[in-house]
Amino acid sequence: MTRKQKRLAVIAGALVFLGGATTLTFYALGQRTSYFYMPSDLSAKPVEPGQRIRLGGLVEKGSIQRGQGTEVAFAVTDQEKTIKVVYNGLLPDLFREEQGVITEGAFDPAGNFVADSVLAKHDETYMPKEVADSLKEKGVWQEKDGG
């Protein structure tokens, strides 16, 4: 191989590598990201059981039921529709009735949302951003009384 050919080979190798990395990145973006839904979005465009999504809203008042041990069930609402969520694990410190939460998981065939992670707002003035935006659009939540 001449020097020129070698250089071409190196450049071609680098391009193949970069192409591979780009493909991988976009493949992963397509597969490994989860979309954010509010309960009423789900009635508009339903989600297949088993597909991972993030479900956000307010914890419905009076809906928290603690089962034996660490199981807990509650309902997430955006004041229009309500979705029942089951979760097995430790709830975050700031998990309370009528406060914003984001849960991540998938629907089981029976239509319950099985969450494997539950995030609550982080401090007194912070509402998960997606939840706050969506609730504001619906006019349910105002800066002051929601916080």
């Binding site: 990395a21 991988l24 990145t25 992963a28 973006l29 597969q31 490994r32 990201t33 989860s34 979309y35 954010f36 993030r54 991540e104 997606e130």
Partner: peptide, 14 residues
Amino acid sequence: GEKISVGAPFFNLT
């Protein structure tokens, strides 16, 4: 305006 979350699964893979 679509909201997605790119989390650990994406980063672990790439």
